[in-house]
Design a protein around this nucleic acid. Structure first.
Lengths: 366, 366
DNA sequence: CTGAAAGCGCTAACAT
DNA sequence: ATGTTAGCGCTTTCAG
């Protein structure tokens, strides 16, 4: 029982690569590093390959029951657990892709996830989700290299993108240089929204913005502004976090403000369906009927949109398709030994006109 | 350019361990398996260790710029990507824990996730999420051994639990034999709910159940039934999937049914806050005031509960604490080289009385 | 500045 | 039924 390798406490550089280095509890039999199958073999008095057989469950009929028990006992005493990295180095295993989203509860991301997961499974990849605000954090998560590919949805361009070593595709966001992306062609859709309202006769609208600084929302704002300007419409603005109650309060304040300023808005263009729900609540609180007194539009077409009364006029963002297409491109890059996918494709988003928009009420002043 | 190893199409057992076996695109330079750093070295005319230096970014000042470029070029031509498994076998890396939940959009799981993630990060673990309906599916996901531990929340006991090789703890569910768990002490809380209603004077209640067959919901049902029986209360039942609209429809039908049967209910006990929201909607649709005509209770105390008017009387389930405690136990088991954690702890759940419960309306018959 | 050589912990023939 | 022997692809001294 001698010959334990280097002296335990003396190593200066010894614990640089400690996996269990800093633990307070070193296990039943104290040894500097986690026990290996060799240690188990030695303790059980068998060869290492026997240990391997036992732990792979391939021992049936090849290792005597008594021996198996001895191996198991020795393993237990040492607290042995097979090293999964070593195992995979030999035998390989299913590959894994990570989907990163900024928020778990938003149903839009659930849809993207569903689409992406389907495509990944079809290709035999495992899928896990990471909830992270920006790309940089995802990069940190991936640094350990346990995933083979990354699909990042709606994460803002946080400076340095991902480690170059793992293929990645960005969804619904500006891709860092050299990365591919699948995104929505959102500007035309918002132009259409404004145009729709304009044709109905609206001239004073409120743009209820999402208080999130990502490119998709910047594009939405730019499109709304440009469309209003081009049509000579007055456009008020307010920003709220993507939360029904916050949106309600913000919208309510903005409605009151504009009314007090002498040019009440007749329509609210919301960056998002959740914000639109807030706008509904605000209208209700202000005693405004939708769409009689106030028209409301959203973006996303989440299930909710049709659960509202009246149903919400909104821009359909095909989240599942987004996830699915992004995943396909990503997986192609994983196997095609090529560089990162680098092209950017845009998915069409189209306006669904429903009951929440109608001509504005007749104005006393005009 | 000969010497391509075994004949391409002939291998019977050849692709048993194919990592890129079934791909249609074999990369710029066709070789049976993915290129290694040796291949790159050969093509670049350098030694393998030089390639290693370059790819680790440790080449600064140790490898001539021209050589580096040559290595990079060769790698590109071969479509070389360092093998992460091999790398980790040598250097180790951060460990990863998987949190499995049945549903992404339910805010309760978001809270559990938050709590668990905090604890994991503190301990230097990466965290990923897996959305899966039952434990068996999680096991499949984990078979590839890329995670070091599993925290499974509210997943039903789907027969065989997890592969024994990875430590796991179950949250809010019946743990399979030999596994540890952290769960809520939910029965007393629901007894308290019923008792609260009973004291207010309610005698006819509806239990709006979640249409999910997991132990926590079975326990809730048993507690409600027992409490009602003990107090001589009439208890109607209806089950809906955990979705606001489904709950609304189900609740509405049940309310009408009981009214038609001659014993209208004066209170609805919901298995979940989301169901309770449905009950609010149903009451509204039926023209019943809450709490004047109908009292409503929930379980979970999600943020929503206080956003409703009147605020929802509900059972507070401390999801964050659940996640945090579960994670701590789990991580202790990962490092303590011991066996699976096996004990089961129960977290208290307490009733929060708010505005949605009040004495029943005076009955004409009774 | 670059190369040779020795492993990391495990699996899988191939011997006994 | 068990042991021996080669590696998997990479990192990392240690010599040139």
């Amino acid at each position: 029982m001698l010959g334990q390798g280097r002296g335990a406490g003396s190593g200066a550089a010894a614990d640089a690569r400690s996996r269990r280095g800093a633990r307070g509890y070193a296990g039943p039999v104290t040894t500097g590093k986690p026990p290996t199958s060799h240690d188990v073999a030695r303790l059980a008095g068998v060869s290492q390959s026997t240990v391997s057989l036992v732990f792979r469950g391939a021992a049936r009929g090849r290792v005597a029951p008594g021996t198996q028990q001895a191996v198991l006992d020795a393993a237990r005493r040492l607290g042995f657990r097979p090293n999964a990295d070593a195992r995979r180095l030999r035998v390989g295993g299913p590959r894994m892709v990570l989907i990163a989203v900024p928020d778990i509860v938003n149903p839009f991301f659930a849809r993207v996830f569903t689409g992406a997961r389907g495509a990944a499974r079809e290709a035999g990849f495992q899928v896990v989700l990471s909830v992270q605000r920006d790309l940089a954090s995802v990069a940190a998560d991936v640094a350990g290299q346990r995933v083979d590919a990354v699909l990042a949805c709606s994460l803002d361009d946080g400076g340095r993108p991902l480690d170059d070593s793992v293929p990645a595709v960005v969804l619904d966001a500006e891709p860092p240089a050299g990365m591919g992306a699948v995104r929505f062609d959102i500007a035309p859709a918002l132009t259409e929204v404004v145009d729709h309202l304009h044709r109905l006769g609206h001239r004073d609208i409120l743009h209820l913005r999402a208080d999130v600084d990502t490119s998709t929302f910047r594009e939405r704002a730019a499109a709304v502004d440009a469309a209003c300007a081009a049509r000579g419409m007055r456009r008020a603005r307010a920003a709220a976090s993507v939360d029904r109650d916050a949106a309600r309060d913000t919208a309510r304040a903005a409605l009151a403000r504009e009314r007090a300023a002498g040019h009440p808005v007749t329509a609210v263009v919301c960056d998002d369906d959740i914000l639109a729900v807030g706008a509904y609540k605000a209208a209700q609180a202000e005693g405004l009927a939708i769409p009689g007194d106030l028209s409301v539009t959203g973006v996303d077409n989440v299930d909710l949109a049709q659960a509202l009364t009246p149903e919400l006029t909104t821009v359909d963002l095909p989240g599942e398709t987004l996830g699915e297409m992004g995943m396909r491109r990503l997986l192609a890059a994983v196997d095609g030994a090529d560089t990162q996918p680098t092209e950017v494709v845009r998915l069409p988003a189209r306006l669904l006109i429903r009951g929440s928009t109608a001509p504005p009420p007749r104005r006393s002043a005009g």
